[in-house]
Nucleic acid binder design. Sequence first.
DNA 1: AGGGCTCGCTTGTTTGTACAAGTTCCCCTA
DNA 2: TAGGGGAACTTGTACAAACAAGCGAGCCCT
Lengths: 248, 248
Amino acid sequence: MVARYERIAEELRKEILSGAHPVGSPLPSETELAERYGAARGTVRQAVAVLAAEGLVGSRQGARRIVLGKVRSQSFAELHSFAQWARANGNRYGGQVVEQRRRRASGAESARLGCDDVLEVLRVRTLEGEPVLLERTVYAGWVAPAVEGLPADCGSVTEALYESVGLVFAYGEHLIDAVAAGAVDARLLGVRRGSPLLRQRRTTTTHEGRPVETSDDRYRAGSVAFSIRNSIGANPLARQVGDLRFER
Amino acid sequence: MVARYERIAEELRKEILSGAHPVGSPLPSETELAERYGAARGTVRQAVAVLAAEGLVGSRQGARRIVLGKVRSQSFAELHSFAQWARANGNRYGGQVVEQRRRRASGAESARLGCDDVLEVLRVRTLEGEPVLLERTVYAGWVAPAVEGLPADCGSVTEALYESVGLVFAYGEHLIDAVAAGAVDARLLGVRRGSPLLRQRRTTTTHEGRPVETSDDRYRAGSVAFSIRNSIGANPLARQVGDLRFER
DNA sequence: AGGGCTCGCTTGTTTGTACAAGTTCCCCTA
DNA sequence: TAGGGGAACTTGTACAAACAAGCGAGCCCT
């Protein structure tokens, strides 16, 4: 059962994407929409709040809402999972484990994951046959058995873990910066040493706030970019000075 | 006049930051908070929704909200404005115009900004005396006079434009990736040619959805990182394949 | 023609109520 | 002791109503 406000949001989204409300044009007023859908104004407000959070429409007190764009930002799942993102974009993708071993957690890892034994996995991900991403993931000890049970060329780790042990990644913290490719990075990604890589370091937790993994992902320059839409009053992203929290 | 739910959110934020609600612990229930603050449950819900959007707390139907972290993601203003961000962090900052000229818009620029005459400005930004950011900004023709009226070492362009002509940047679209430093980049940022830079390309519009500027900002590696907290159901960020929309 | 003002419209905030849906934990039973 | 069944609690959804605050268009006056 989908909530009413979500169905209304879905309809409005379709109308915007189809061009019924061109970019720059005003949306109907809340009262008007409420009448049209036979819902209360509050419900309509929730619907348009969803669109605003997606960056599709903007709003200002006193004036009608404006259509800002047609690009919809992807879901958490697509940000977290390389496979789900690639599939949603219609790309061919693959993955291969290069190295995998258990070891004791470093001080920082133990603090981030809340456990002393971890599983470190080095994976190369391909897009359209090309290696584009190098994942250095450290899993908390309690998920290690499940991860070790996966095939080395597992396409989607996120989905496999959900299906095998019902694990759901719910919250993530991401730090994005640029680094030069080291010798290993260069060999596995097929670029020259020192060439620029886009680095995404993340820590993911379950619904209950239990940390699952922390990862250092490096994208080949030019292969992938992160996209954000934001507005006054909505603040998904932040800059940070240097490397304060992710040292090893 | 600040809204009630914002003041409640502010108090809760302080409590979280001060450690009264440690990371991983549950927040008081909505009813309890409503009683404590003498507000309706709906108002409290708005307050915690703010915190959830900031990534400070997570929530699931049926269970108490959990404190996820203490890092607060900054506001839109701080993401948009280098100066406001640096000041909020307590850093010394500066800026210097290197080059500035009017010219005709390229095809892509004209499409993005909706005008044919533009002003291109090249600025170097410093943090603690070090050059860390190179801004190549293209302003729409209608703001060009205001921008030209600014001093060359203007610290905060965003604030200066607000004070001089009441211009407010309201919406932004950002693309983040990594590139190698070109000859000019290298000289102005004091790094070697080919060293990795974090690039943020953005287009910003006013409240009314009118495009103001589009910019190519390059950060020296190691100086700045972007930070994102997200969760299932909240989706500020997206990956994109290669360079689809920002060609020149 | 231009500038200022008012009025209607639209979004923002707050309260109250009711029910639905999911979680947690305790107790009881096999 | 392990598991099932509830009951109490908590968050999610929906509706209704009222007022505040801001915007824009049209009107009037100079």
